[in-house]
């Protein structure tokens, strides 16, 4: 235990904010590391992503929940984040969807003679109205770290980008984010659902990440067992291990640690 404490003060590492996870990782995440967290559905990966945000100077990039929703969840668990900022892509996205929906002219309105004539006229003019390009969410993500210089960036989740952009585009952006993270000597967490983006893409992601954590749910009889595995840790082969975990009112609780090596 003492050893861990010593290591925690070591400036080479950054605490995840979960003591037992730091233990499993023998000190935390090495600064400059990009960590991929893969979770199968039902693994409560979204809770882990918020718990990671408690410690340190954090930039939380949220794509599915709004800033408010994230903060509500954090408060529910009674966590008090030291310093948290948000890049709220979820809100931006829903706004853009809404505005598109608003622009849609009601068919009943269009059916009036006047509107129809106008419609025919613009249709015959051949001039495509300047379409306001949709916001580039990938760009928002990659720019967000530049203004705040956080210690920790948590991206929850990559699934959103993969549903809107090609895998190549997403990978390119992540590579840039990884390089920026090294320069900043911060840690970058990328959350992604396991098993829905194709095996090849998962391999590519695992290859790119310095550290890979995987959350799995296994059904045993009538109960579910949850495991957190450290699948990869660049240059620290002995850190590879697996722990059973549960979720209680305090969040993630790691129960048993098994070393694989």
């Amino acid at each position: 235990m003492d050893l861990v404490k010593v290591q925690l003060t070591n400036s080479e590492f950054l605490s995840t904010g979960i003591e037992k996870l730091d233990n499993l990782l023998e000190g935390g995440i090495l600064k400059g590391f990009t960590t991929l967290i893969l979770g199968s559905p039902g693994s409560s990966i979204e809770i882990l992503s918020k718990q990671l945000a408690v410690k340190g100077k954090v930039l939380y990039v949220t794509t599915d929940e709004t800033e408010q929703e994230v903060m509500d969840a954090i408060t529910r668990f009674g966590w008090k984040p030291e310093h948290i900022e948000f890049t709220d892509i979820a809100t931006k996205y829903s706004k853009s969807v809404l505005s598109r929906e608003k622009k849609r002219v009601s068919i009943y309105e269009q059916r009036s003679k006047l509107k129809l004539k106008e419609l025919i006229e613009i249709g015959s003019s051949g001039v495509m109205p300047a379409v306001k390009a949709q916001e580039d969410f990938l760009a928002i993500f990659s720019n967000s770290a530049k203004t705040t210089s956080p210690e920790k960036i948590i991206l929850n989740s990559l699934d959103f980008f993969l549903s809107m952009y090609s895998q190549e585009e997403v990978l390119r952006t992540l590579h840039a984010a990884k390089v920026a993270n090294i320069e900043r000597a911060g840690v970058l967490f990328i959350i992604m659902t396991k098993g829905i983006h194709g095996e090849v893409f998962e391999r590519k992601m695992e290859g790119m990440a310095d550290c890979v954590l995987e959350l799995n749910v296994i059904q045993k009889g009538s109960t579910f067992e949850r495991f957190l595995a450290v699948k990869k840790m660049r240059n620290y082969a002995k850190k590879i291990g697996i722990a059973r975990y549960a979720i209680d009112s305090d969040g993630f609780v790691l129960e048993m640690i098994e070393r694989i090596m």
Partner: peptide, 30 residues
Amino acid sequence: NLIDLRIISERLGLDAEKYTVEDASALLEI
């Protein structure tokens, strides 16, 4: 009369790539 249908559907607020059932019937009406 020559009419660019893409301009019409853009004006109707239809998605350029995919039409929903509602989009399709709106386009049909137009």
